[in-house]
Design a protein around this nucleic acid. Structure first.
Lengths: 190, 190
DNA sequence: TCGTTAAGTTCCAATCTAGAACTATCGCGT
DNA sequence: ACGCGATAGTTCTAGATTGGAACTTAACGA
């Protein structure tokens, strides 16, 4: 699966991963939330190669997560700031930081604390249900298909995100060994 | 920065990214939360190459996110299940899915809905402050160094988990050599 | 004129990934 | 007994991605 395909998948998680699912992008976004805005700022604080940084920034701009705005004209210079779409990534960042705070700290404790301006206290993020306000537990959540779910036509299901290996079955001569009546799980959509 | 170094960083986010910060790992974890447990299950639903799948599973087991448990003895077979450490990744997964639901859906709507067993309703996850219960906004949060903040720097840079290029030292000696021939192609652009 | 800052580009070598084949074991059908 | 299929990997090669460092462009200040 290539990066491009990821965004076409009928899965919000896959699509999001297509946007932020690589280590440098995530780190760049961390810097954005720590108020870094300029190319050199990202480069020196992350130690990313200039080449990749330019690439990733371009991609984030293309995807509407960052906006590139000029801050001087003389030699055209720009800075990168989070759009609303980018700011909305905040819960993801906090969830990641929190997991690290719980499971990856050494004996000395957390590297960074977070203070909530509203209540003035150091906090940790808690994910709750929008309907009842209770903290979410994986086992208390049941998933079911929504309106955007994949409807695989009963007769024609050639482009399935799964079964990649079969789709490429054009190497007929060599693949024939396996190409027997491969009684795969052929199920029809209800 | 290599993958290994990431986990040494004095930043919970970098450390977490060292564990789950690549596209396949995230996708594998999605499958785990959707109750996939076996090698073939992951392979066929994700279309990941067997080679990478084996590698990633091994890494997740090493890091304590998954546990490898035998489910039959004849030809030794194992399945991979989430440990508590792995289950704790749930908020990250939900945050990622939610962002996708908001920003990456097509006209048909969300591919997957989530029902909270406790209250019986379809919900979306909300991240709140553990202290006051209010939803978290990026601008209402202030970060400050905690006990595990960067060790070596005596001058203790305030709020700065960065500055990791220290060893690189800007290519000091060579940086000056290049200044030689640059004035040759000098012309003004209207 | 030199040196510096800022934001990229370009180039080559080192890694990593995709895709397909191969290995190993056991249980089954004939 | 023999071959087949299912499961879980491992190996191999070619192509894609990354890392590292130099080079470019443009303007400013000493």
């Amino acid at each position: 699966m290539k990066w491009g395909e990821l965004e076409e998948e009928p899965c919000s998680m896959a699509r999001t991963i297509g946007v932020i699912g690589d280590r440098w992008t995530l780190l760049i976004l961390r810097e954005c939330f720590l108020r870094t805005r300029r190319f050199e700022g990202f480069q020196s604080s992350l130690g990313i190669t200039r080449h990749l940084l330019a690439e990733r920034l371009k991609k984030l701009v293309r995807q509407g997560v960052l906006r590139r705005i000029p801050y001087q004209d003389s030699p055209k210079r720009h800075e990168y700031i989070l759009t609303q779409k980018g700011l909305d990534l905040y819960p993801i960042m906090m969830a990641i930081v929190h997991w690290g705070d719980i499971h990856m700290v050494d004996a000395r404790g957390r590297p960074l604390l977070h203070e909530h301006r509203k209540c003035g206290k150091d906090f940790h993020p808690v994910m709750v249900c929008s309907e009842c306000g209770e903290p979410l537990l994986a086992k208390e959540v049941h998933t079911h298909p929504g309106p955007g779910a994949r409807r695989n036509s009963p007769s024609a299901a050639p482009e399935n995100p799964k079964a990649k290996t079969e789709a490429k079955a054009k190497t007929e001569a060599k693949a024939k060994t396996k190409a027997k009546t491969k009684a795969t799980t052929r199920r029809r959509a209800a």
